[in-house]
Simulated scan of single mutants.
Amino acid sequence: MVVIPLGLIVTVCVVDVLAPPHIHLGPLLVAAPAITVAFAGAWLTALMGALAVAAQVLIGVLRGVLTTANIQAQIAALVIVSTICVTVCVVRDRRERQLHRVRSVAVAAQSVLLQPLPTRAGPLRIAGLYLPAEEEAELGGDLYAAARTDHHSTRLLIGDVRGNGLAAINNTALLLGAFRAAAHRQATLPRLAIHLDGAFRWDTSQWRSQDEQDTTEDFATAIFLDIPDHDPVVHLITCGHPPPLLLRGNHLTPLTAEASHLPIGFGGAFGISAYDVQTFPFEVGDLLLLYTDGVIEARNADGVFYPFTERAPEWTKDDPDELLRHLQDDLLAHVHGHLNDDAAVVAIRRLAV
């Protein structure tokens, strides 16, 4: 890229010196620092500006017109434009450094809140994928987490908090913290669901007046799963969330619960004191896909939803990490790189103990 402004300076010098007296290409030298500012920093931009000024002085000397008002005006214009370009570079570089620091904080926050899932938990091979809808965002309203229990089982949570922005991130952090604090010690899945529902309602309403509580609806759809190590089944509680998909070979089965409970945050308000646990077979070699509605409701420019249940069986034989890589590429290609909502997917394969 540096060759472009340098070549422009050399070309203008040669042509302007060899051209007839009535032809003046010196004003084109202003393009050299203007082009450099697009790809380089302040020092290189200043260098190109200085070379452009030096070239204009050289042209004036060789043509014997250095003392004329026209050449002096051109030199002054080059100095002013070069100074402006350097100033723009300095401001831009400062803002880029600030943005880099903000991104670093965002990445650190994501690593604390949405911690990576373990690649192995007992006989399970696990992989997670999170795709934020907002560009440059690292965390939104979708969430997932896993925990081991003392009963030789793995518990997982996947959920989708209502809304977006800072409020959604705050509620996401609340649910993840409550799950990590309780998942390993709660005796049953229903007790875990009751605990999270109560913690969510209490924390999101403790500082609000009664009027604010009546007009504000904070809730999250979620699925709680418990997968024992030595029993080929999966236990789950569904709270308004899309059903998991069980892939066995090329056959796909939605694990639709007989009773889907209200989202987290509504249970206690409606007097729900018990949660029904559904049990489904989950054998060695089976693959379980958990996902949020950002996947199945992703639309392309023509308004066509992403065919998740049609595409998923194509990657059944893949490793969970490889499957999610295929899914990410295919999903982003379907929406042309622009998701309307955050999307999260968790892939779990049961291996032999």
Rank of each mutant, 00 (worst) to 15 (best):
Leu6Phe: 15
Ala269Lys: 13
Arg208Pro: 02
Leu252Ile: 14
Ala137Arg: 06
Glu297Lys: 10
Leu156Arg: 00
His235Met: 04
His184Phe: 09
Gly271Ser: 09
Glu96Asp: 09
Glu310Pro: 01
Arg103Ser: 11
Leu175Val: 02
Pro118Thr: 06
Ala274Phe: 10
Thr11Cys: 13
His230Gly: 07
Thr292Trp: 07
Glu217Gln: 13
Thr316Asp: 07
Asp197Thr: 00
Val234Gln: 06
Thr279Ser: 14
Arg299His: 12
Ala167Phe: 01
Leu44Phe: 06
Leu47Val: 08
Cys13Ile: 14
Ala32Asp: 04
Lys317Cys: 11
Thr216Asn: 13
Gly140Ala: 06
Leu129Gln: 00
Glu314Tyr: 12
Thr119Ser: 11
Leu156Thr: 00
Arg191Glu: 15
Leu196Tyr: 02
Ala145Val: 02
His338Tyr: 11
Ala269Glu: 15
Ser209Arg: 06
Asp276Thr: 12
Val17Gln: 08
Ser209Phe: 05
Phe266Ile: 04
Glu217Tyr: 07
Thr215Gln: 15
Asp197Tyr: 00
Arg125Gln: 15
Ala167Glu: 14
Ile227Gly: 03
Leu117Cys: 10
Gly141Ala: 05
Thr253Trp: 10
Arg92Ser: 14
Ala127Pro: 05
Ser82His: 06
Pro132Arg: 01
Leu246Gln: 10
Val30Ile: 15
Val345Tyr: 07
Glu135Arg: 14
Pro33Tyr: 06
Gly249Arg: 03
Asn171Cys: 12
Gly141Ser: 05
Ala182Glu: 12
Arg248Lys: 13
Leu8Thr: 00
Thr279Phe: 07
Ile169Pro: 01
Pro33Cys: 08
Val37Ile: 06
Leu166Arg: 09
His334Met: 10
Gly7Met: 04
Gly140Tyr: 07
Cys239Met: 15
Leu225Phe: 06
Arg185Phe: 06
Ala298Asp: 09
Asp226Ser: 08
Thr154Asn: 03
Asp16Val: 03
Glu258Arg: 15
Gly303Pro: 09
Gln72Leu: 14
Asp293Arg: 04
Ser153Arg: 11
Phe270Glu: 12
Arg325Ser: 08
Leu327Cys: 10
His22Trp: 13
Gln278Gly: 02
Glu283Val: 08
Glu258Asn: 15
Gly165Ser: 12
Ala182Lys: 01
Leu139Met: 14
Ala173Phe: 08
Ala108Val: 14
Ala199Arg: 03
Arg185Pro: 01
Val14His: 10
Thr215His: 15
Arg248Gly: 09
Val12Gln: 02
Pro243Gly: 08
Leu8Ser: 00
His334Trp: 15
Ile264Phe: 02
Glu135Asn: 10
His261Trp: 08
Val90Gly: 02
Val277Thr: 14
Thr204Glu: 05
His334Arg: 08
Pro116Lys: 05
Gly49Ser: 07
Arg350Asn: 07
Asp229Met: 03
Thr119Cys: 04
Asn300Glu: 08
Val14Lys: 06
Pro123Asp: 13
Ala69Trp: 12
Pro242Ser: 07
